[in-house]
Amino acid sequence: MSIARKFKSPASRVAAVVLVLSLIAAAMSARRIDEMRPEARLEEVLYLQSPAVIKFMSLGYTGLAASIYWTRAVQYFGEKHYAKAKRFDLLPKLLDLTVDLDPHLIPAYSFGSIFLAQQPPEGAGMPDQAVEFIERGIRENPDYWRFYYNLGFIHFIERHDYKAAADAFERGSKVRGANPAMKTMAALMEQRAGNTQTARILWTNIYESTDEPIIRRNALTRLVALRVDEDVWNLDHLLEKYIDHTGSTPHSWQELISGGILRGVPADPSGDPYKLTTDGHAVVQNPQKFPFIQRGIPRGQSSPETITPESRKVVEGAQVTPR
């Protein structure tokens, strides 16, 4: 009897082959099952609605349970977002359960409030619930000044309530260690400064404070839109001056360049030149590329209220340096 033979007995060899094959097949089968029930991944019903029950069932590992619920909330949001859903009915409940289990889970409040606040499909379109949720975060974590920032942001961008926004930034600026810019923001709000400048600062802050791809892309789209607004406002201003000066409406940008008013043909953030209308206004060539813009929309067209495939390309291509 040789040892080599014993360690490689026929049964061992067969077992090794069966092990490898069945493990691979099982993994493939598991994938298949997963694909078969994408909806079943998160049922549209929450069976456990009581934090007390969940706490009991988690055997005291409430932090872990909170993480699981937070993962579910993000997954739920992600899947709904991906499916371009208009309703996110379960999101507030999932978020509430998460922070019931762990009231100090910071990302749940900051991301959760943004998910809730924005218009679908970027968010759930529930700004009031978002305000309520982030206020809860502030109550539970009064020393975390960034929540006041989130609150002010939601009031300003989604609810256009400048007074409430100013109040939020003001309260936040009093928290120890708060960013001094909070004071500035409060002042801007007080002036009802609903201008692009303020919006840019807010969106830039949002963009830089997170790695969450959905939030970042949205912020970037907003920043691109703000830049278009600003460009158009500037170009219109120049055109107005030119018309005042010469008494005639220019037919092309070339006339302004020869007149020393422009240095070159102005281009939008996607690289396309702005179009000059016959009545002397600057407009974008394709508004589909620029959701949320207020100015520069060609007559008879409109700017989309949501991210479009074209706008996504612009954002991905743009080396955006929020100015």
Binding site: S9, A11, S12, V14, A15, A16, V18, L19, S22, L23, A25, A26, S29, A30, I33
Partner: peptide
């Protein structure tokens, strides 16, 4: 899936036990 997974676990058991 259940049969495959059980087969995998049993062959691992055999491999060790042999």
């Amino acid at each position: 899936y259940a049969f495959l997974y059980a087969a995998a676990a049993l062959s691992a058991a055999t491999l060790i036990f042999e």
